[in-house]
Computed example of a mutant assay.
Amino acid sequence: MTPLYYAVSGIMLAWHNLFSLFLDPAGGWSWVLSIVGLTVVIRALLIPIFVKQIKSSRNMQLIQPKVKELQKKYGHDRERLAQETMKLYKETGTNPFASCLPLLLQMPIFFALFRLINHAANDEAKGFLSQTDVNQFSHGEIFGAPISATLTDSISGPDQDLAVVIVAVFLVISMTATTFFTQRQLMAKNMPKDAMSGPYAQQQKLLLYVLPVVFAVSGIAFPIGVMIYWTTSNLWTMGQQFYIIRNNPAPGTDAFKAKQERDRLKADKKGGVALAESEVDVEVEPETRRPAQRQQPKRQTREQRKKGGPGSSGTQNQGKNK
């Protein structure tokens, strides 16, 4: 964990030095925002992994009909079914474990931050944190609750702090709710209906209800600073997921139909604007630009032609005869 202590503490100190330019360095908000900054850096570094996760999840959804066909064909032979399924994954470039990668890669950072805060609460400096930083960090407060405090310590300890209880309970609920809605957003908007009954859907449903319970139970022992990190990470995931699902949804999903409708309305709007502009051009066309019409000769009666008046056809015929 020592390399992670240095990495986590180094990123936090860089953000803390930035926020100290306009906030109290010893105040809790400068350290809380440093934890938020740490979350932003970690999640930004994980964007390529997150994109792979979305692509893999989409492939898992699209190949569900083929997986069902394999189950019908090789349901009696589990070994052959596993071989054919893995072959299908390989041909389509699908990794069934890719959905867990961002969570797994964040866990070491999560535990490193957890240990750093615990050591700071015991006045122990780790990584790049100096003893002065540790004193500021351990005594920094947000809404009257120390960043290093936990809900269990506040309830079971001799000095019960109401501020710690309120802030910790709020963060436990926020962490649990954002975990649930992040997973539900992916299932409700970016999964085709024919994939909702497959094994992949069952796995997603299991994560939908198990992960929030795990974080709700374990969150009561997390320091406030750790819960701030995880809640911020969930909010980042929700926003990132919303952007990708809205702009590049999986075919056959509700999000895909919604995007088609938006594209159609956008195309109709552009077409209407172009038509209106062409109509304006026609209306402002001046009549003076039209070519002049030739004047037709006046019609003459038979008597006028016999008399051979000027410009008459009789005169013209006489000129021809001469």
Rank of each mutant, 00 (worst) to 15 (best):
S197F: 04
R264E: 04
A7N: 07
K193Y: 15
L186K: 12
H16G: 04
Q53H: 02
L62Q: 06
E91S: 10
K55V: 00
L81P: 04
M12E: 10
L81S: 07
V226F: 08
K266N: 14
H119A: 15
L62C: 01
V165T: 13
K66E: 08
Q316N: 08
S197T: 14
L116P: 09
S34E: 10
E261I: 12
M196L: 09
F114R: 13
P286A: 04
T232A: 09
Q318N: 11
A145H: 02
P96V: 06
I49F: 05
Q61H: 04
V284K: 09
M107G: 08
A255R: 03
I244K: 00
Q304K: 03
F137E: 11
T253G: 06
P146N: 02
I54V: 11
L104Q: 08
D268M: 04
M191A: 15
Y243T: 08
R290E: 08
K90E: 00
G311C: 02
P286W: 02
P65E: 12
F50V: 13
Y89V: 10
P286Q: 05
V134R: 09
A250Q: 06
P102W: 03
G319F: 12
P251S: 07
T39C: 07
R290K: 15
Q240V: 12
M60K: 14
R305E: 11
W15Y: 10
G219F: 01
R290F: 12
V172H: 01
D77V: 04
I166N: 08
R289Q: 12
L103F: 14
D254R: 15
F222C: 05
N59V: 15
L235G: 03
P108R: 06
D263T: 13
